[in-house]
């Protein structure tokens, strides 16, 4: 059953990421049309619950998606199994989550 849960978690996280990436790219292209500096961008994102939630959700989806994907690769190519495989994937997931949330905090924190 764990295989099915991991499979579904990876597909659901992909389905979450896809529209978020499109919105991210769309907003970025729209926002820089008139020329915009990093300070101006930060002035708009700091303190914004909307952008905090938007990128926070993206980071969570990335951490879930990438950790499960790497689990498959480590299992198939390096033949890792059991606790070592699970431990490595939890580590990768938490490392991505920590790095991503730190970046989100820098963009939306004051």
């Amino acid at each position: 059953m764990i295989e099915l849960r991991l499979y579904l978690a990876q597909r659901i996280s992909a389905a979450i990421m896809a529209p978020l990436v499109l919105v991210h790219l769309g907003v970025m292209i729209y926002a820089i049309q008139g020329g915009v500096s990093a300070d101006e961008i930060l002035a708009r994102t700091r303190g914004s619950l909307l952008w905090g939630g938007f990128y926070g959700l993206f980071v969570i989806a990335v951490a879930v998606h990438a950790a499960i994907g790497l689990r498959n690769i480590l299992s198939e190519w390096l033949h890792l199994r059991g606790l070592l495989l699970s431990g490595l994937c939890w580590f990768i997931g938490f490392a991505l989550l920590a790095a991503g949330l730190r970046a989100v905090a820098a963009v939306v924190g004051s």
Binding site: M1, I2, E3, L4, Y7, N72
Partner: peptide, 9 residues
């Protein structure tokens, strides 16, 4: 077929 090594692989 949903277990480890099944269709999800």
């Amino acid at each position: 077929i949903s277990a480890d090594g099944g269709c999800l692989s």
